[in-house]
């Protein structure tokens, strides 16, 4: 960045900005009620500040399980009541932070639609409850090819071992973006079972999947090594260090072999 703002100017701006960016806490029920009422008609172009009482109520409810559950329920109810895309977007962002098993059914209902699938995952991917993964696993075979890479990716980020079989079945998908997401996610899951699937696929991967398959194998091997699965990691590295892999992949595999063999 080469703009001409001076350090001093930035300092002055920064010093006042933290307080200014946050509305004064308004956790009283009237303000909160008004914000939830606003949510019903909220849309692109609406004043974002009108929802600040909800933001503040979430912050204020940290450590208060009952209050947190109550505000989560209000968000879920709002979602179920029919909202604009912008309002759905807002609610899902909040459920990313406060969502529990209580939210999952409402979020799962948004997964199949192209307009809302991602923003539902935006919350579900980060909710640790197993039911969140289950919702995405259930949705995977039902959603369109365009949405599949996202679902696969979220399951991979969660290292969801229960989805290995379903994801493996998509490695050879004719849609390269689905196939690549499948390879990447198996790499992220990084268990011996995922390694077995990746290893088999890498040996027969078409030209346009070679780099994705090799990279997934390397990522998987690193996860295996970190988890103490040394022999499985070594097997993947050896496989990649042979055949017609690009030089940089072979070098990476060689480094991996060295790391695996020297690891106690």
């Amino acid at each position: 960045m080469t703009n001409t703002d001076s350090v001093g100017m930035a300092a002055a701006v920064g010093a006042v900005a933290i307080g200014a960016g946050r509305a004064v806490a308004q956790t009283g029920s009237a303000a909160l009620d008004a914000a939830f009422e606003t949510l019903k008609t909220y849309d692109w172009g609406s004043d974002r500040g009108a929802l600040n009482p909800i933001d503040q109520a979430i912050i204020a409810s940290h450590g208060d399980a009952a209050a947190r559950k109550a505000i989560e329920k209000r968000l879920v109810d709002a979602l179920a009541g029919g909202l604009s895309r912008s309002a759905q977007d807002y609610v899902c962002r909040k459920l990313k932070v406060v969502g529990t098993s209580q939210s999952i059914e409402a979020l799962a209902a948004l997964l199949p639609a192209q307009e809302t699938s991602h923003i539902a995952r935006y919350a579900l991917e980060r909710i640790a409850d197993e039911k969140a993964a289950e919702a995405m696993r259930d949705a995977l075979p039902k959603v369109s090819g365009k949405l599949k890479p996202g679902m696969i990716g979220s399951l991979g980020v969660r290292r969801d071992t229960k989805s290995i079989k379903a994801i493996s079945g998509l490695l050879g998908d004719s849609d390269i973006q689905v196939a690549q997401a499948a390879a990447q996610s198996l790499g992220l899951i990084g268990t011996p079972a995922a390694a077995k699937e990746l290893s088999a696929f890498a040996q027969k991967a078409p030209a346009n999947m070679k780099i994705a398959a090799a990279d997934a194998c390397l990522v998987c091997a690193e996860r295996l090594l970190a988890d103490g699965e040394k022999s499985e990691a070594l097997a993947l590295y050896k496989q990649l260090n042979s055949g017609d892999q690009p030089a940089h992949v072979k070098v990476a595999a060689m480094k991996g072999m060295l790391a695996a063999t020297t690891r106690k």
């Binding site: 940290h62 990313k96 932070v97 406060v98 699938s117 991602h118 995952r121 935006y122 579900l124 991917e125 980060r126 909710i127 640790a128 365009k146 949405l147 599949k148 890479p149 996202g150 679902m151 696969i152 990716g153 979220s154 991979g156 980020v157 973006q177 689905v178 690549q180 997401a181 990447q184 996610s185």
Partner: peptide, 18 residues
């Protein structure tokens, strides 16, 4: 801190995965 850990990353819009 489960809540803070939810902010460690964001779900990416399809088809992007890392």
């Amino acid at each position: 801190d489960d809540e803070a850990n939810r902010l460690v990353d964001v779900a990416r819009r399809e088809p992007w995965v890392i």
